[in-house]
């Protein structure tokens, strides 16, 4: 997994790239969580994520819950077909912010 973070009007956009599994979830959290803790709105661009497993879904849940707790939000953008399928399999499409 690789990533790029850009800033736009006080929104942090995290572009994730590659496959997100248990082996890279700590790295993903190290990128995303400090942005949420800084109370920024975070957009996760998942266009180039070709595979996500339950560990990746856990990162999305944890990010969403942390953001809600701190009064900000995480929005999932440009979700790839394969990731959307896993989100729906986990029945999270009504819980996470899909933008």
């Amino acid at each position: 997994m690789s990533y790029k973070v850009t800033e736009e009007d006080n929104v942090s956009i995290v572009h994730l790239d590659g496959e997100i599994d248990m082996d890279v979830t700590e790295k993903a959290k190290e990128v995303i969580m400090p942005l949420i803790e800084a109370k920024k709105e975070v957009h996760l661009n998942l266009k180039n994520v070709q595979y996500m497993d339950s560990s990746g879904i856990s990162v999305l849940i944890e990010s969403h819950q942390k953001a809600t707790e701190l009064g900000t939000k995480v929005i999932l953008k440009d979700i790839s077909k394969s990731v959307l399928k896993v989100i729906m399999m986990a029945k999270l499409e009504q819980i996470l912010n899909l933008g």
Binding site: D53, S54, I57, S58, I61, E62, Q65, V86, M89, A90
Partner: peptide, 17 residues
């Protein structure tokens, strides 16, 4: 439980689905 939304515990759910 799938409606108890929290990180973790989904892998076995996926396998069974």
């Amino acid at each position: 439980k799938i409606d108890d939304v929290k990180p973790g515990g989904l892998g076995t759910f996926f396998i069974k689905q």
